[in-house]
Design a binder for these strands. Structure first.
Lengths: 224, 224
DNA sequence: ATTATTATTTAGATACGTCTAAATAATTGT
DNA sequence: ACAATTATTTAGACGTATCTAAATAATAAT
């Protein structure tokens, strides 16, 4: 097997876009779809997709759309791996917040060095998910599936990452803020109070008690 | 003052090359010099230097050479700062060895995020020198001067980073290896034995005794 | 099924960064 | 001081990645 072919920055961005549009499965995606995702013009996509096809990383049939080859998928997964590892690094080691990491990770994911990524992975303690709760592919490209659930639907004893709210009214957000619950936090479900459906949960080493109404408005991402 | 103008990868590389050729002072350097440093052709340098001149980062007079403007120097120092901080990161946190860091740092130095660098600096404990003993410019562009000296010429009590050998014969290198002295190691001069000119030194928490002959063949880089 | 609409591709242009070959300026040797 | 040499620039070309405008294919509507 030859080492991964050299891809330009731009080529890598297209591969990632096609990957994300195809939702990780190898779905065929449209030229216009890619153009929108990349904030570019359809004609540019056609040009690039032809080139990627020559390189053997996508399957392209004019007017019929484009999908990643096996090789293309490997590259996409490697990029996703790098992106998410860097996100963990930024949050855990450099005090970035949940919503600041994407732009920087978008740059860092293009750095080419196998050793760098392997060592970064080790340095971070081989994390399984990124700060948004999304799974980090292994070196070989395997990764766990995750699902999004409301907190009140999650089994006792499992933990997940807070990824969103159902109710985004100011009072609710204020409540979360007061209780130091933020997006990106890992939440462990300790116990359910059957009497009123309330929950005992643990957020960053602090145990708190939340009503069922709160629980049914918080989305967690959990490893399936 | 406006934030730093956007520079492409290529432009940044030229700025750094001009900076290094000018040895940090604002010396005027030749087109051919830059071409050699960059491993490119003189005509390419002329083209780029014209563009950089338009952008106000270099002073360029045809046939007379090129130098950095104050703005160009700021950019160069910022690149050097980033490069060296990343080198420290790679060695201290990711177990890279002395000689593996350059290529990767060369890529990382182009990442654009002020917060990233500030936090990285903090994460590393605000280091003053990189693994090669070269000083790291502060955010404002100031940095300490360093000089290279033979170990036997260094004052007692000072420490420096091992950056080279005068005698590179196999027996000498084998001696260094046996005594766990490697390039990049910080060496502290503890005491000098006046009787035979030998030295007591400390390398990575270990005290050792070396002859004057050894001491006069080891180069240290010390902060002036 | 034919037309209208939308999606996609092609053709030709532009900006960037590079190159080679030719022209011109600066420097060196005698 | 002039010729020879070397350094530098100019002119014209190429590859990458993009764009606009026009042409063509696929899809939807009646």
């Amino acid at each position: 097997m030859f080492g991964t072919i050299f891809m330009t920055l731009s080529e890598e961005d297209y591969i990632k876009a096609i990957y994300h549009l195809g939702k990780g499965d190898n779905t065929t995606v449209s030229t216009n779809g890619v153009a929108e995702q990349m904030e570019t013009k359809p004609s540019s996509v056609t040009d690039m997709v032809k080139k990627l096809s020559e390189k053997g990383v996508v399957n392209y049939r004019p007017y019929k759309g484009v999908s990643l080859t096996e090789h293309g998928q490997k590259i996409a997964l490697s990029l996703v791996r790098k992106h998410r590892l860097w996100e963990v690094f930024l949050v855990e080691k450099l005090n970035f917040s949940w919503d600041e990491v994407h732009e920087v990770a978008e740059q860092l994911e293009h750095i080419k060095s196998e050793k760098l990524i392997d060592q970064l992975d080790k340095h971070l303690g081989f994390p399984e998910v990124d700060p948004h709760g999304d799974p980090i592919p292994s070196k070989k490209g395997e990764f766990k599936k995750t699902i999004k659930k409301l907190l009140n639907e999650v089994a006792i004893g499992t933990s997940g990452i807070c990824v969103g709210v159902k109710d985004s009214s100011p009072p609710f957000l204020k409540f979360l803020d007061k209780n130091k619950i933020a997006l990106g936090d890992t939440i462990l479900i300790l116990e359910k109070e059957e009497f009123d459906g309330s929950f005992y949960i643990q957020v960053k080493d602090i145990k708190i008690h939340i009503s069922n109404q709160i629980a049914s408005n918080l989305y967690l991402k959990i490893t399936a």
